[in-house]
């Protein structure tokens, strides 16, 4: 059986992980690892390019998206566990003219 592709979770507080692998398509199963060596298998929803992120749990619209244990923006719509997370469903909260 082919080895599972890895996704890295940086901090305990994070609700996204970064996948450093090519050919991640809808339905691919990845292994999420954190610094302590904990592992969890997650099914990816959507095609995810190298170095991009997936959700580790359901994230409701408006909730903070966390990486490095810090807020990197808010969910602009409801996000499901395994969904591809990027500019289409994450909005920055800083450097904006409208906030």
């Amino acid at each position: 059986m082919e080895e599972l592709k890895l996704a890295l979770k940086v901090d305990d507080l994070d609700n996204v992980a970064t996948i450093f692998a090519d050919a991640i398509t809808d339905g691919t199963r990845v292994e999420v690892r954190d610094k302590k060596g904990n592992m969890e298998e997650i099914t990816v929803h959507g095609d995810v390019p190298y170095g991009h992120k997936i959700a580790l749990c359901n994230i409701a619209r408006g909730e903070h998206i966390m990486k490095y244990g810090e807020c990197i923006g808010a969910a602009s719509c409801d996000i499901k566990k395994g969904d591809y997370v990027h500019v289409h469903n994450l909005e920055a909260l800083r450097g904006r003219g409208d906030l």
């Binding site: 390019p49 490095y68 807020c71 990197i72 920055a92 003219g97």
Partner: peptide, 26 residues
């Protein structure tokens, strides 16, 4: 009168997986 988004992160940063200025900064 401009929004920083569109200039930071750069298009290349976004293609590389960085979704917001906060993620880039951290």
């Amino acid at each position: 009168g401009e929004d920083m988004r569109g200039g930071q992160p750069t298009p290349g940063n976004i293609a590389g997986g960085l979704s917001s200025i906060e993620e880039k900064s951290l």
